[in-house]
């Protein structure tokens, strides 16, 4: 099976590899895995508290070329989007962009899961850091 040029490009020059401060309240972290192949993917976002725009995204993936390319692309795509916009990214968008073959679709699924998990983590942090006015019933 041959990788597409786009996959090879992301694999050789992955964008946004690295990590952000996990404990920061503006940072959301998603750690997901695909048990079928044993891949793990960590994707982190830094969100502007005023605008809800994702200003930074970093990833680190241990897995095959398609998994690395999918997560690299995911960080590129979420940057500059609001949290809600980023949630509309679907795995099939990644499949199309990278021309992933059917056997590698799970890599794109993993990338979508990672985006969702990172945003979910960030949202959870916002709830807990907000004033407890909501709970006063």
């Amino acid at each position: 099976m041959a990788y597409s040029d786009k996959v090879i490009d992301h694999y050789n020059h992955p964008r946004n590899v690295g990590s952000l401060d996990k404990s920061s309240s503006d940072v959301g972290t998603g750690l997901v895995g695909a048990p079928e192949c044993g891949d793990v993917m960590k994707l982190q976002i830094k969100v502007n508290p005023q605008t809800n725009v994702i200003e930074e995204a970093k990833f680190k993936t241990f897995g095959c070329g398609s998994a690395i390319a999918s997560s690299s692309l995911a960080t590129e795509w979420v940057k500059g989007k609001t949290v809600d916009e980023a949630l509309s990214i679907k795995n099939m968008d990644i499949v199309k962009e990278l021309a992933l073959p059917p056997v590698k679709i799970h890599c794109s699924v993993l990338a979508e899961d990672a985006i969702r998990a990172a945003i979910g983590d960030w949202k959870k942090k916002q709830e807990t850091t907000k004033p407890a006015a909501v709970e006063a019933k």
């Binding site: 998603g30 750690l31 997901v32 895995g33 695909a34 048990p35 079928e36 044993g38 793990v40 960590k42 680190k60 241990f62 949630l87 679907k90 795995n91 679709i105 799970h106 699924v109 979508e112 899961d113 969702r116 998990a117 945003i119 979910g120 983590d121």
Partner: peptide, 29 residues
């Protein structure tokens, strides 16, 4: 299973439940 769980999470606007415990994923990472 994995794909349909992703689709479910997408529709419900939730985070997909990982099939292995998060602590194991951390260790693997």
């Amino acid at each position: 299973q994995s794909k349909s769980a992703t689709e479910e999470a997408r529709t419900a606007g939730t985070v997909k439940k990982q099939v292995v415990p998060p602590a194991l994923l951390e260790e693997v990472f």
